[in-house]
Amino acid sequence: MAKPSGHHVFNAFRGALIGTAEAVPGVSGGTVALITGVYEKLIDGAGHITSALRMGASDLPRGRGAARARAELRNVDWTVLLPLLAGMAVALVLAAKLIAPLVEEHPQSAYALFFGLVLASLWVPYSGSGKRWTVGNYALCVVVALGAFTLTGLPPGEMPTHPVVVALAGSIAICALVLPGISGSFLLLTMGLYEPTIEAVNERDFGYLAAFALGCVVGLALFVKLLKWLLANYHHMTLVVMTGLMAGSLRALWPWQDDDRGLLAPSGSVGLTCALFALGAAVVIAVLVVEHRAQGKKAEPSAAAPKRGRHARVTSGSGRD
């Protein structure tokens, strides 16, 4: 039975939120995917697609590549993935044109809003596996958070826009796209390629965009398979690491920073900044409450059924965590 068109529109809206986040330095599209409940669906779909491409290429000389690739692609939930990707693509182009300049003109207000959003989002990976955290889990989370805190404190640099460099930057940025907490745009900013990439999108520089897209494809093929395997086999520990990444990356969104990303004490329009921070947190809390109630109406959990987190595993892995 086909799903109603409203379902596809909602998935496109989810994709638009993810695409918009990727245009803002410091905000991770993966974080927004977690909030909207489609993160593992995206990773699962990307994993099947990259496997299909690999099978098609490796088995092509023996004439079996097309059949194996089609079989792998049938495992993708296209009713979710296609609207998501369409929404992401449209929103990314529009956000690069409209939202990115607003962030540059009003960084304190914009970062306050996103700081509240990401801070409230920590609840998602923290509670995602349904397992109780141990002392070791908390220690690992702190170590990862310190690493992310250090990474997001690196001052912006400059790199040439040579196609090889652009492709390498794309492969790194796409890994950040699928990893909650680390922003692909922020990494591009650190490498000095954020503004050239935004300009290439706005000016339709297809040479630059082709090199960047090639890097994204390679990076996605390598990283998504690893992440999918980790979610299937070490789901709880993977979410512990994600929680640390998101917590440490909050440094990138601290509203008071100098040009070299040094942290400053609150000053100037502190009241408005705090209000925007509270608004960002409230938006996430509202989304989580609505989703929780919607899931509760679908089915009442059986008393004998084991408790699970809000995000199901991408595959029926061995569950060795």
Rank of each mutant, 00 (worst) to 15 (best):
G153Q: 10
G184Y: 05
R261N: 12
H48D: 07
S183L: 09
G262D: 09
L279R: 02
P107N: 06
G147V: 09
A312R: 11
T315F: 14
R68M: 14
T31L: 04
A148M: 08
R74F: 11
L102P: 01
V38Y: 00
A110W: 01
E104I: 01
V284Y: 01
V165K: 04
E105A: 15
E104M: 08
G87A: 10
L263D: 03
V178F: 15
D59C: 06
A52P: 03
G26T: 08
L82N: 00
A213C: 12
L140K: 08
E199C: 04
A232Y: 05
M159A: 15
K307N: 09
P156K: 09
S127G: 15
G19M: 02
G15T: 02
A57L: 14
S267E: 13
L113W: 06
M237C: 07
L98K: 07
F212M: 11
S318E: 13
I285K: 09
A167D: 07
W78G: 08
Q108R: 12
A33T: 06
S302R: 14
Y208S: 03
R64C: 10
H48Q: 14
Y39C: 06
H7L: 02
P180M: 08
A21V: 05
T273M: 06
Q108T: 12
L102H: 10
V80K: 01
E40T: 14
E300I: 12
V76K: 03
R62Q: 15
T134A: 12
P306N: 11
F223W: 13
C175Q: 04
F186T: 00
D59N: 10
W254K: 06
V201C: 11
V165E: 03
G116N: 02
S267C: 04
W229A: 09
L230P: 02
N202K: 14
P160Y: 08
G47T: 05
G192E: 03
S121Q: 03
L154Y: 10
R14N: 10
A91T: 04
L177C: 04
L98E: 09
R64M: 11
L119T: 12
D59E: 13
P266C: 09
A112V: 05
A46G: 02
L17Q: 01
T36Y: 00
G63A: 08
L94R: 01
L53F: 12
V144P: 01
M159Y: 09
G157S: 12
E300K: 13
A167T: 08
Y234V: 10
D260L: 14
L113Y: 02
P196Y: 10
T190V: 14
L60C: 09
A139E: 06
N11Q: 14
K131I: 05
A145I: 07
R64H: 14
L193M: 12
L279G: 04
L81T: 02
S51I: 07
T273I: 07
E203N: 11
A173Q: 10
G30Q: 03
R70A: 15
K131M: 13
V24H: 00
G19Y: 00
T150H: 10
L117K: 05
M246C: 10
L239S: 05
D259M: 11
L279M: 13
V142R: 07
A247I: 01
V290A: 15
I285N: 00
A281C: 07
E22S: 06
